[in-house]
Design a binder for these strands. Structure first.
Lengths: 337, 337
DNA sequence: CTGAAAGCGCTTACAG
DNA sequence: CTGAAAGCGCTTACAG
């Protein structure tokens, strides 16, 4: 079987290839009859336009790049699945590009990626979505991009995030309602805006309930399981020991749970533990982790959807949206006695 | 700044664009002096060939597709990272395509993918790498592909797998050496060849140590955490209860651990538990899971590397390789008393 | 060793 | 409403 191209379609339908092109792209100025005829030939010949030829002519690749540097595999797969959904809907493809924010020459790396792969746009996930330097570079290069879970306030950046501060606030209030006042907190990676937002939510809840913030209860993590284990050790060694630990993500919370269990502490009777993200591990361990569910797929889906819209027809005002995070209580938190 | 194309390079270097093309592709028949000169202009102008134009002329896309349908996020990310490494090395890109083996019209789905995205090759991970139907289709369509972790014996398929049978054998022997004879086994998904291989390793070890296989100890899982939870319930309800459980992957093993802990069984004192894969969860829970480490990244890396080689210069004989799996003992297994 | 011509399968800009 | 021409940035096939 030979290849079906715009030429074979044109010949078979008895029209010029420009006309075929017009119906292909849903352009006006084709009589209903001709349009009908060409459409029929598409079906008969099972014609599928060659995206590469299209790309060359229009100087487009129909490829969106997705940047990430995140220790959480589940976060990455969720990001990918949201991005893929939006891409497929509009006949785009997704190119995944894991790289390091702190790696030498990030800008060079991205520049290389852009010129080598001719991406039509970029979706930035944390911590890239919080990098002003990168965003400035993209603006200057005139590359379309969308920000996922970014704290950057910028009128001309497409941005979809969730309300981390509020989520952390609610989780902390949940612990306070259970009678906890000595609530340890494990921070995330300083490059992520989520780190500050979640910490702020924690502080606001304490403040609102007139519980003084204790610096000794705050540990510096970086979202990795390993950093959670280090922080867990520091926290469980404290005297007096706090009655609850709120870790900035579920991996770190799982590390706290592991150490607590190793030390024969009963969770939640002796120690309440909470995480953030609602990663699979939160329900795969016992006791299950109380946590905050973030709509990661949905954020990414919307971001990519808007990015593609922006690429095909540039908008004056840009889409920005804050989605809700929601508290999920499981067995790892209970009343303090 | 204007675009740097083969034309600008040719003009600047004072040669024809064919000559530029020759040095670009490392073709012979260019005098060392001209080659040198053109290479210098590449640098000066920071020339990067447009892969889309190249693709159109050569009828190539420089894109490899990666097919997967796997409940394990960590498996997927490992597959991706191995595949990306090989792709980047040869200036290819990776297109990820999650889809369902059992979904209606898999072949149609793949056909669509192939013609729409003009992939140069496909890397198949389980369960696709075990689908004869899909492989036949690809052969007939003349699409290059490589198989990861496939059990299919086929002289003309590139294939990289690891020795699951041997891994399961060693793990079972490890349990036997600890004094266990009543060892429950949770199978994986029937569409994956790993399921049979791992079960065979388990049976071979029992046999070699003259321990009769007890059907009542064998549960049907499907690699998902959820199926592990169901199997765990069935197994822990048995009387007499086995002293050890070997789950075909770590997620299912984690589910067994969760239920055992809920039921106040001490692991490993009352029950030894082992998994397979060495997924992150195996070390994120307490007690850590004894398991078999598979070189997933390396398998995929090699498979994609060979696939790209095959694409660029078709080989007569095809690469096939079996990598070693290796036992990792952690706290979840101990002597039976 | 080097290059002019034609072509990959589309689209853009223009003319009718 | 329709189409002939030129072009996107490369490569292939051929001639010298």
């Amino acid at each position: 079987m030979k290849k079906v191209t715009i030429n074979s379609v044109a010949q078979y339908a008895g029209v010029s290839k420009k006309t075929v092109s017009r119906v292909l792209n849903n352009e006006p100025n084709v009589s209903p009859a001709t349009r009908e005829k060409v459409l029929k030939v598409f079906k008969e010949l099972d014609y599928r336009p060659n995206p590469i030829a299209r790309g060359l002519a229009r100087n487009k690749s129909f490829i969106i790049g997705c940047l990430y540097d995140n220790p959480s595999k589940s976060y990455i797969t969720r990001v990918q699945s949201g991005a893929l959904e939006a891409c497929h809907k509009h006949n785009y493809n997704l190119l995944i590009h894991p790289c390091e924010l702190r790696g030498e020459a990030l800008i060079d790396n991205i520049d290389q990626l852009l010129t080598t792969s001719r991406l039509d746009g970029l979706v930035l996930t944390p911590p890239f979505s919080d990098s002003r330097e990168l965003i400035e570079f993209l603006k200057q290069k005139n590359i379309n991009y969308a920000l996922v879970a970014s704290a950057i306030q910028d009128d001309d950046s497409i941005s979809v995030c969730s309300n981390d501060e509020q989520g952390a606030f609610e989780l902390t209030e949940h612990l306070i309602a259970l009678g906890h006042t000595d609530i340890a907190f494990i921070k995330g990676h300083p490059d992520h805006s989520a780190t500050e937002n979640r910490f702020n939510g924690y502080k606001r809840a304490l403040e609102q309930h007139q519980i003084p913030l204790q610096e000794r209860l705050v540990a510096e993590g970086n979202f990795s399981y390993h950093s959670g284990a280090d922080s867990a050790k520091a926290i469980l060694d404290l005297t007096p020991r706090p009655s609850a630990v709120f870790a900035s993500n579920d991996y770190m919370a799982a590390a706290v749970l592991k150490l607590a269990t190793q030390r024969q502490l009963r969770v939640p009777e002796d120690l309440s533990i909470a995480g953030f993200d609602n990663a699979p591990i939160a329900r795969h361990i016992w006791p299950g982790l109380t946590t905050i569910a973030q709509p990661v797929e949905e954020m990414t889906r919307q971001a990519v959807e808007q990015l593609i819209l922006q690429i095909s027809e540039p908008q004056d005002t840009v889409y920005q949206c804050v989605l809700e995070a929601r508290l999920i209580t499981r067995e790892s938190t209970a009343a303090n006695h």
